[in-house]
Design a protein around this nucleic acid. Structure first.
Lengths: 250, 250
DNA sequence: AAGTGGTCTAGACCACGGC
DNA sequence: CCGTGGTCTAGACCACTTC
């Protein structure tokens, strides 16, 4: 609950230099949900109750709940009340390989095939919005499930922008994680092209499959929250070992 | 603009039994955008101006603009104003094959391979939320680009729910279109599983490719706006002839 | 009938953007 | 500086759900 001034007086905008009242209300509710104190389907306090509890006007309490409803955290039913929304399944969620495995309760292992700087990938530089001959960081990793190779993933980024990235222990840690923690890059979304192709000799050797075997190819251009193309990645996934799940809307 | 009562008087809720004032404001702005009178990047009237024009309070004008911003129709910039948002590219959009071709400026052709009712597809019936032995409508079509076959698509639906669907001229018309126009089904979204596989003899013959060639397989469970699983579809797409584009979010 | 969310008023001050 | 959106007040009536 928001602290009150020592001598509470009538005020039109009491909240100077603090977090907005409506966000404090939202946070209070979110905390109760996170703590398991409020479970899906449970009612959250009504607008009038929140207004009284937090000593704000109805419109402010209302703003807090409306925005949470917009975000899908709660559901509002006219005449009935406001209720904690059922946990939403995350669709079309951009995850690194490590994160995908973690979400399945598995540990990701990788084998770094190559890691360095290249200058002759003109088309990829263009996709990243760079000059054709720009220096690009390039990382090739074979992804393993248990001992079995399931995918080859190749990532590219502007070498000058993330200089020390090639030195990170990327056989153990998540590229996404390093970018976000070490470089403060917030990734926002990726545009992906998905098709089927078949394994050439090199892919066949790396993935321990037959040449010509079917592979799922995913090419992704990953954008930061600032709308900047940050990473270009190409992955080849063994048939039968990897399924992409997406939801599309009418 | 909202009509005024003959003798305008002070009122707390003047809008009895009409469309809410904030929606009228939104519609007025939408109309101007649709008419091309307001183009992307153009400013829309400020909160204060809308309040004055429509004779409503600031909060109401504000509500109108906030909701339009939430819907992505306009963008609000603190201290600067509210502007028509650039046209949003449609990502993760659920389209039938005919519609995809149309959106590329091409005409879709199909060859119906089989069309009828089956009763032994227990697993698919289950996915559609039906009893295992339910009667299912089944439609197999080869999709053509020019004269070249590029995909085999197989659709399943509850035969008892859409009885005359098997009689529709589905080599010319869109299944989605028939469902929406003839049966009043509003499709909402589809959950899709995408992977790579290779062609068996039958697929090879139908698609005029070699046995063992790579294919992109998309299995989709399509839901209506009522949240009901309505159509199950499996498509096999020739490598190099079909790319799926999706956007995923962090 | 009581309580809920939905719409709305007529103002206020604050923080930010561009001139 | 002025105009913009962002936050907020202290109420009001309406429409709906639940009892």
């Amino acid at each position: 609950m928001r602290p009150l001034p020592e001598f509470a007086v009538k005020r039109t905008m009491p909240n100077r230099s603090e977090e907005p009242a409506y966000k404090q209300i939202q946070n209070a509710i979110r905390r109760r949900i996170d703590a398991g104190q409020l479970k899906p389907g449970n009612p959250v306090p009504s607008e009038r109750e929140l207004a009284r509890l937090h000593k704000v006007s109805l419109m402010t309490a209302r703003h807090a709940l409306s925005e949470m409803a917009r975000d899908g955290v709660v559901e509002r039913r006219h005449g009935a009340g406001t209720f904690v929304a059922p946990p939403r399944v995350q669709f079309n969620k951009l995850l690194g390989y490590s994160e995908q495995m973690a979400s399945l309760g598995l540990t990701a292992h990788s084998r770094v095939i190559s890691c360095g700087v290249v200058t002759r990938e003109h088309e990829i530089a263009a996709r990243l919005g760079l000059a054709p001959t720009s220096r690009l960081g390039k990382l090739e990793r074979v992804r393993l499930a248990g001992d079995e190779p399931v995918a080859l993933e190749t990532c590219y980024w502007a070498a000058d922008e993330f200089p020390k990235l090639v030195d990170a222990p990327l056989d153990h840690v998540s590229l996404f994680g390093v970018l976000e923690r070490e470089f403060g890059v917030e990734l926002a979304y990726s545009d992906e092209e998905i098709d089927a192709t078949d394994a050439d000799q090199r892919l066949a050797d790396l993935l321990e499959i037959q040449r010509g075997s079917s592979l799922l190819r995913i090419r992704q251009l990953i954008f930061s929250t600032k709308g900047r193309a940050t990473v270009y990645a190409v992955g080849f996934y063994r048939s039968g070992r990897h399924t992409l799940r997406v939801r599309r809307f009418r």
